[in-house]
Design a protein around this nucleic acid. Structure first.
Lengths: 215, 215
DNA sequence: GCAAATTAATGATTTATTCAAG
DNA sequence: CTTGAATAAATCATTAATTTGC
């Protein structure tokens, strides 16, 4: 885990060039950049929480009564391991229609789930993303496999799920996909790159838009 | 169809199943979950779970098949419009090698850029993402006709990446995968009241408790 | 029975795609 | 058209479940 090095680097940059910004205002030729107020107010509209991970080796000394259900081990920096209760709640919420919780929702869910084990907001965020994606995956795969052989089971499945999705969609306020441009969570991680795109063909062939949300 | 139905639905869920955790802990396929004792079973009063978004604007005509996802102009909120200085700084940093700044970097960049105009962390985050993606796009498009890519184009700077033993890629085209596992940042953008009609200062409180243990 | 080795799930991160504002 | 903002898809990485050899 030698990643914090980079932080150092960046910091060095900044410290060496505290006012570098002055000399740089020339690259982009955006025609419509209004040179407006400088407003150094720097309001605290942004709260950043940096998790001091970097394994101090928290050790979790021989859990006794205080045991957290299932994840009492958070040694150093392991990933979130949800408890049964947490999963249950999350799934209920998902079934209840929550698919892309906004900040407030995440906030509250996290608070609630925190009663059952260590958890952070990002875990909730990720859970919903992953769950949604994998449910969709499952659906797609199943419907794909059923295209050629099933005459009776497929419609049933489809209908059921479709209905449920429909209900969910309607229910959560103005459809979970309609809410953007609003408060948001935002995550970030250290630098890292991935292999270049390998020219994958488009998989845009949806069998059929079962999900209204599927674009 | 009512949107609040779900609210009621969800609430009903909660109220009817105060100890839902037990009954819901079965969704996972893995049957090997040790039934731990749950202390403090469920006082889940997530009554106000659903975002109290005011006003059902943008009622899409209930067109379920072609649901246009993105919507909803943020009332009173406009998107970030970078100033020349901000763009200059960002591009310098980009050229300097920063492609995916981490939390601390974002924090600092935001702070710096904040001197020249209103900005949030997420703007910085998005800027790097978009810039990276679009540079890549451009490159690909241009090299589509020309296979003779110049092998040089090595950034002169960025050499000061010191102290880390990691190999630390320098270009995205060249790093299959190195290492991840980094601390994450999760930020919350409270919607600051840009609109004159909002004077809620309730947003200033903190978001995600980092360590639920502490509570 | 029980660990090491394997496999299946799934949490976490990055990339690609999309939509809308200006 | 450019580009900020947001989401979905793909992928990596780690943990649990399961299998296997003793």
């Amino acid at each position: 885990m030698g990643n914090m090095k980079v932080h150092q680097l960046a910091r060095g940059f900044w410290e060496h060039e505290p006012s570098l910004s002055q000399s740089l205002a020339c690259k982009r030729l955006r025609p419509l950049a209004p040179n407006h107020h400088h407003q150094a107010s720097s309001s605290l509209d942004l709260k950043s929480f940096i998790r001091p991970e970097s394994g101090p080796r928290k050790l979790a000394p021989s859990d006794h009564k205080r045991d957290s259900p299932q994840v009492e081990t958070h040694p150093g920096g392991t990933r979130w391991n949800p408890t049964q209760e947490q999963i249950g709640i999350l799934e209920m919420l998902y079934r209840g229609g929550i698919r892309t919780p906004n900040a407030q929702q995440i906030e509250q869910v996290t608070a609630q789930l925190g009663k059952y084990g260590k958890i952070e907001g990002k875990n909730v965020f990720y859970w919903f993303q992953n769950h949604k994606a994998r449910e969709r995956q499952k659906l797609k795969r199943s419907s794909l496999g059923l295209t050629h052989c099933s005459r009776n089971s497929a419609p049933i499945t489809t209908i059921t799920l479709d209905t449920r999705v429909e209900i969910m969609e309607r229910s959560d306020e103005d459809s979970p996909y309609k809410r953007k441009c609003k408060s948001w969570l935002f995550e970030y991680m250290g630098e890292e790159s991935r292999s270049p795109c390998k020219e994958e063909e488009k998989r845009t062939l949806e069998l059929f838009p079962l999900h209204p949300e599927g674009r």
